[in-house]
Design a protein around this nucleic acid. Sequence first.
DNA 1: AAGTTTATTGACCCGTCAATCAACAAAAAA
DNA 2: TTTTTTGTTGATTGACGGGTCAATAAACTT
Lengths: 195, 195
Amino acid sequence: MPKLGMEPIRKTALVKATIVEIGRAGSLDVTVGQIAKRAGMSTALAHHYFGGKEAIFLAAMRHILSLYGAEVRGALCVVGGPRARLDAILLASFSPANFRREVVSAWLNFYVLAQTVPGARRLLAVYQARLQSNLTHALRPLIGARAPGVAAALGALIDGVYLREALGPGAADGRAAIYLVQAYLAAELNKGSGA
Amino acid sequence: MPKLGMEPIRKTALVKATIVEIGRAGSLDVTVGQIAKRAGMSTALAHHYFGGKEAIFLAAMRHILSLYGAEVRGALCVVGGPRARLDAILLASFSPANFRREVVSAWLNFYVLAQTVPGARRLLAVYQARLQSNLTHALRPLIGARAPGVAAALGALIDGVYLREALGPGAADGRAAIYLVQAYLAAELNKGSGA
DNA sequence: AAGTTTATTGACCCGTCAATCAACAAAAAA
DNA sequence: TTTTTTGTTGATTGACGGGTCAATAAACTT
């Protein structure tokens, strides 16, 4: 009973199923069969629409990234002042959604993939550049020329804190992460006015 | 021509071969056969000494971690003042050895493994606790009670900077990483004396 | 009605891989 | 010297996984 216009539906179903399965496995050791089954179709169909396993993974990564991007954009377009913009970025970066098991697993494996798969590396560069740009714009009114450097550090700090929070012993707590990064921000802003 | 006392030799050969192969593959998609071949023995022997693939991986991770620990200890035992101790930790953390492809790959896959393999998670916790302890001890004379909090941030920053440097576009540059972290340190120390 | 495009699958092929085992070799112990 | 321990491997196995393909069926076109 093939209905027409199935392609986008199947593709998104596969992408979502892929993220879930990566979360379950904690790695990319996920078979096309598992993904297809969870998405409610045959393995052959998954191959038909994506052409191969790697393409499925990349589509899933793109999806994760676009979700995060949307969250940041959404948070940014509401608030006004530069300081509030920074907080909005932090809030979006450490939102509970980003600490779900599937998302954490996707990110970690994304890093692994970025070593060898050019597509993944490009995607990662896009994410980092966007974060850098957002942070720099928000920082510029506060610290002027020092903005790019601080933004770089801030971006790295966000990644590092995320890593530790996600792999830490207890349940991930976004608030603790935000608090920690805000303390760094306070130090940098203070330095600007003090020196 | 079996000589006696082969076990430690074979085991270290396997561990080193494992790290090399992980670096080559960029992932844990490495067969016992590849590892054994590089180590100059049969797959059966690898199984004989380690009992299974996961045990080989964990041994390799332990090796990476112990190398890093030794590097830090070595750097620490030479210098005197608290500020110099901090720099020593940074220097060891961002030494060229840590940016070799195999080491980067081992770390990234270590993170992935830590999600699901308890042994890997424990190992990671040990590393983080040791770093935290080293940093706190070095920071205490400089900023007193604020030391633990700043150490946590510093640890996260080190991980984050490492990640970006290792996955960045160009060749990894430890000096840039050190410079970035030192800028953060300056801000935090300045804050302490300024407020 | 005949032909084309889209959707879909079960079955299959080919390769790979972790793990096992039987067997052999040399040194050490008895 | 016989036995046991240690070292070592080739061959095998059992399972699995990615990818292909032929075949089927519904919808759309002419």
